[in-house]
Design a protein around this nucleic acid. Structure first.
Lengths: 107, 107
DNA sequence: TGAACTATAGAACCAAGTCCTACATATTGG
DNA sequence: CCAATATGTAGGACTTGGTTCTATAGTTCA
């Protein structure tokens, strides 16, 4: 299943690269190119406080280390996990990547 | 060179995994584990307006598509590139990943 | 010609993220 | 055993990033 997940994301990357090549070769126009781009984007989930904590504990790191990976302060991670504040757009994207591919994907 | 880049990041991921395994096996303490974690983290650069634009153009996408990848609005990307506003912590992390590994790394 | 994509520009608003302090608890190492 | 470190909670104050809205304008293409 780890294999399946990796395969899926590789496919998406491949689609993007292929579409880019086809566009450079003049075989598809920008319209179509953009549709390819949208179709190969992984949807960004939204994370509850407990989901964030579960995700971090799955990765076996402290709030401080987790924060370093995401390039935020430890206070922010603490606030997310307590439901005090919610991660914004870019932060959610990073959490999504970690959820799918693990912490090593953003090392 | 693409191979070299991939190799370097793989090494960092491997260090993290190995350190985690050693810690679970009780062979290294949390102190050392944390040092390993810090050492295998890629430093996050800060990006100027023109660097962000150059990065996006290197990836051959419009502001709108670039924004979708980062999970921000197109307006934010426009403001970054005009020097109107600067990307925050998590956004800089994403830009760093794109700079190193390309857009497909965060697809 | 008109429809869609691209990018700029600016104003207003909310809350994310930062920084600071203080506190409590384990766990560790000397 | 005691001091030091790591960990997490809590809260207050502040800054500014990110969103939303609208308007403008050049371009590409059917």
């Amino acid at each position: 299943m780890a294999r399946t997940k990796a395969y899926k994301s590789d496919v998406k990357a491949a689609i993007h690269e292929t579409a880019l090549d086809l566009h450079e070769a003049g075989l598809i126009d920008k319209h179509t190119m953009r549709r390819f781009d949208q179709s190969c984007l992984t949807p960004v989930r939204t994370f509850s406080a407990t989901e964030i904590r579960a995700l971090r504990e799955r990765e076996q790191v402290s709030q401080t280390v987790f924060a370093m990976y995401l390039n935020v302060t430890k206070d922010s991670v603490s606030q997310w996990e307590r439901g005090d504040k919610r991660p914004a757009g870019p932060a959610c994207k990073l959490l999504s990547i970690v959820a799918e591919k693990g912490l090593s994907a953003i090392a």
